[in-house]
Design a binder for these strands. Structure first.
Length: 799
RNA sequence: GCCGGGAUGGCGAAAUUGGCAAACGCACGAGACUUAAAAUCUCGCGGUCGCAAGACCUUGUGGGUUCAAGUCCCUCUCCCGGCACCA
């Protein structure tokens, strides 16, 4: 009665492995297809998110195999990262052992799902055969000035003695020990991703097969903004303060300027002024605040007068110079011109501190006579007033004219600012790729010579959870000879952020065992670019941006000849339970393993694809899963009662289904593909079966439920795997119906449906319809005003 | 605030891109088989009125274009995501 999924699934997983069914090799005569899903962090257990991500990929892969493509579908592990270190501390083990154990468990779980991976290409980023090439890439970047070291303020936990990422600071404290996080200046390694900002932005246009929202998220992140840098001379000083604005049309309304408290000119500005002490106190107070607190917009803007004045270069007006916590040193020039009448934040600040205002843009619909009428700033467009020679221009025109005028007079410069910052890659942690440099007291920063790579992680580092990076405590790792002068030197103990590892793994998959470089250029020339990439939306910005950056770098050093790594991108939606994301803390996790035991992998795969289209959120439903299982049992039962008889109506239904399923698979609309296969199944059921039609159904279902279909394929008497069956083709003759159902509307309302021969002439059809007595109640004797005929579909009679 | 996405039965969702709204499934109801249950099979299942045939209404709101709008245009409401004291 029930099909024996446990036996069947094991059997076919073994068969595929034995036959190396998914082993990909270059085949110049076949079209290649590189299908990639974002590789997982090896936590040891897969969750429903993985199941969904990898099932979508697997169906695409198997479909392309059936269509005759040479498919590469690799899998590996993003294996460096903090959880391994935490586990080492907690369980008195080593990150290395813990990670490898997790990888083995994870491989097992993935194999139980029956995914079509080429396991011979498996890579783990924590293996030195992989991270050696991280170090190689780093050195290449160092040579080109793309990797550099600089001091910067970072979040520092004094208790754990390590830096924290912004995401690891919770309410101003360390996420692990709650100690108050400090700002500390540290020398850190950066990658100069900003050198690629123009191309990273520009090339987004090539990505027409990416979801719009991912493209727009990257655009936001890169954050190009065009404006003008304006030079304000200080009164009683030779110094100049530069401010940046995107609203140069409001320059004549600038009534004060504001500096960030960290601005380098501040000390000089307040020196000897009555406000000096109060200002110093204010600067100190702001410095104490963490960035997170300072950036929260509901906190009241605070500020203080410096005692100094500057000169507005467009009208030589003296304006006071203030300090305020809402101006950030990191953005623009660290100084702004304030226009209270046309910027709401400046408006509130000016009201609070009694600063001057002047209207310079009149809204179209009303005329502001006096400042006192203003209850808020007008930030829209309008006509220039109080703006010297620019009066009367529209603000859009003025923006261009004023900028050009300022450039000519040398009081401003048209400029572009970017949000994108250089990428901080140093981590004070053990479980990552050692940054391959050596510090020599004589020679300074010395790169590790290529021949000495990889710099391997020492196996015997102590994991106590205290005293910072365990690497620093391994003497024979730290104490080295300088490669240049052979004198005593110290090795870098920082490791790379794990995003480095995942920024090029898709290239490594093309030649995972290559020994002479990060990848074999012959292999990448054949396999790249990735035809379809599939993964979570959470990687929409960082991972995808970094991968694009690395790709452009490899192109620049002549190793590849394309600009973008991922041709098509699909971001799958999350799996929810009771409307919420599954999480341990909410206790609403559904374990895929238990579902596999209960219903089998094929049922799980079927349900997860049927329940929702891939991009939308999916609500988990135990009964829906059962329903999918019932469907498979139903198909199985049909097989038991198969008769060898041909049914022409069924054959037509088959070809309609082939057409629909083929289209849907190409567009990743698996839910509707399954729906139409269910319809066909119901039709076969009604017709007491047809072996040929049934066989084709099995081929079409096989990418989704591969074990189940392999077994049926064999039972049907076929030799070899269903993977070799070839995708069924649509016979266009079979799509032609001999009769059609035409919908008849009167005044847009459906009144009748009629069956007509497919080849009926339009004039004949029209005559027939108008003569039809069943329509008389609607038409009566009213004259026909309009007769619309949509061929083969519909007629609308307007009376 | 700016940018992007979205809103369709009790639920998940379909709708050939302007042409029969609700395919497919879940849940539910009735029946068949069974001593009974499970499984399976058959039928019903947006709303209102009606014994029925059927009629009218229905895709977040209000308007528009059109012979015809879930789909196109404008207005508003709400939800999700990204960026943001960003100058």
């Amino acid at each position: 009665m029930y099909y024996e999924f446990r036996k069947i699934e094991k059997k076919w997983q073994r068969n595929w492995q034995k036959a190396k069914s998914f082993c990909a090799r270059i085949a110049p005569d076949k079209k290649k297809y590189y299908l990639l899903e974002m590789f997982p962090y090896p936590s040891g257990k897969i969750h429903m998110g993985h199941v969904r991500n990898y099932t979508i990929g697997d169906v695409a892969s198997r479909f392309k195999i059936l269509e005759g493509y040479n498919v590469m579908h690799p899998m590996g592990f993003d294996a460096f990262g903090q959880p391994a270190e935490n586990a080492a501390i907690k369980n008195k083990t080593k990150p290395d052992a813990w990670t490898h154990k997790c990888i083995r468990e994870m491989e097992n779980e993935l194999k139980k799902m029956g995914f079509s991976y080429d396991w011979e290409r498996e890579v783990s980023t924590c293996d030195s055969s992989y991270y050696k090439w991280n170090q190689w890439i780093f050195l290449k970047m160092l040579e080109r000035g793309l990797a550099y070291k600089k001091a910067s303020a970072v979040n520092w936990c004094p208790n754990c003695a390590t830096t924290l990422a912004n995401e690891e600071v919770v309410d101003g404290g360390c996420w692990r020990c709650q100690a108050k996080v400090e700002q500390k200046d540290l020398e850190q390694w950066y990658l100069n991703i900003t050198e690629y900002k123009e191309r990273l932005l520009e090339d987004l246009r090539q990505l027409s097969n990416w979801p719009e929202r991912v493209v727009s998220m990257q655009e936001n992140w890169i954050g190009k903004s065009q404006g003008v840098e304006i030079y304000f001379k200080l009164k009683d000083s030779k110094r100049t303060i530069s401010v940046f604005t995107t609203r140069v049309d409001t320059i004549f309304g600038a009534t004060y300027i504001v500096l960030a408290p960290e601005h380098p000119l501040v000390k000089e500005l307040i020196k000897g002024k009555p406000q000096e002490n109060a200002a110093l106190k204010f600067i100190d107070k702001v410095a104490q605040e963490s960035k997170v607190v300072r950036a929260s917009s509901d906190v009241k803007k605070e500020g203080i007068f410096t005692g100094s004045f500057a000169v507005n270069p467009v009208n030589n007006e003296e304006v006071p110079v203030w300090l305020a916590d809402y101006v950030l040193m990191e953005y623009g020039t660290g100084a702004i011109m304030a226009v209270p009448t046309h910027d709401q934040r400046d408006f509130l600040f000016a009201k609070e501190h009694g600063l001057g205002m002047r209207v310079v843009i009149q809204p179209k619909e009303k005329n502001v006579q006096s400042i006192d009428e203003l209850t808020e700033a007008y930030e829209g467009e309008g006509r220039q007033v109080n703006s010297g020679e620019f009066d009367g221009l529209s603000s859009q025109e003025a923006k261009i004219k004023i900028a050009e005028w300022m450039e000519r007079k040398g009081i401003g410069k048209i400029q572009t600012h970017w949000r994108l910052r250089d990428w901080l890659i140093s981590r004070q942690r053990y479980w990552g790729t050692p940054i391959p440099v050596i510090y020599c007291p004589k020679c300074g920063v010395v790169p590790v010579p290529y021949k000495d790579l990889p710099v391997e992680l020492p196996k015997d580092a102590p994991f106590t959870g205290e005293g910072g990076n365990p690497l620093g405590k391994v003497k024979k790792f730290v104490e080295v000879k300088c490669p240049k002068c052979k004198g005593l030197a110290r090795r870098e103990t920082d490791t790379m952020a794990t995003f480095f590892d995942s920024s090029w793994y898709f290239l490594r998959f093309c030649s995972p065992k290559f020994k002479n470089g990060p990848f074999d250029e012959k292999e990448t020339a054949y396999w790249m670019t990735v035809d379809q990439y599939i993964g979570g939306i959470e990687h929409a910005i960082l991972h995808l941006l970094y991968s694009r950056f690395f790709t452009k770098f490899f192109k620049d050093i002549g190793m590849i000849n394309f600009d973008e790594p991922f041709n098509r991108l699909l971001t799958q939606g999350m799996v929810l339970k009771d409307g919420e994301v599954m999480s341990k803390s909410k206790g609403n996790i559904v374990d895929p393993d238990i579902m596999i035991q209960k219903y089998g992998a094929d049922t799980l795969r079927l349900f997860i694809l049927f329940a929702a289209p891939p991009e939308t959120e999916l609500e988990w439903d135990d009964r829906g899963l059962e329903g999918s299982h019932k469907f498979l049992n139903r198909v199985w039962r049909i097989q038991e009662n198969l008769k060898d008889k041909a049914d022409p109506a069924l054959a037509r239904a088959l070809h309609k289904t082939i057409k629909k399923v083929t289209q849907d698979f190409r567009e990743f609309k698996f839910n509707t593909a399954i729906a139409s296969m269910m319809e066909l199944t119901n039709a076969i059921y009604q017709s007491a079966a047809d072996k040929d039609v049934f066989s084709k159904l099995i081929i079409m279902l096989s990418p989704i439920c591969p074990h189940f279909c392999e077994e049926l394929w064999q039972i049907l008497g076929n030799k070899g795997s269903v993977l070799k069956a070839g995708w069924p083709e649509v016979d266009p003759h079979m799509l032609v119906e001999d009769s059609l159902t035409i919908v008849i509307q009167v005044n847009g309302k459906v009144r009748l449906k009629i069956e007509v021969p497919a080849e009926i002439a339009e004039s004949q059809l029209k005559e027939m319809v108008l003569a039809d007595a069943r329509l008389t109640p609607w038409i009566q004797n009213k004259p026909v005003k309009n007769f619309i005929l949509v061929p083969k579909k519909l007629i609308n009679i307007v009376v």
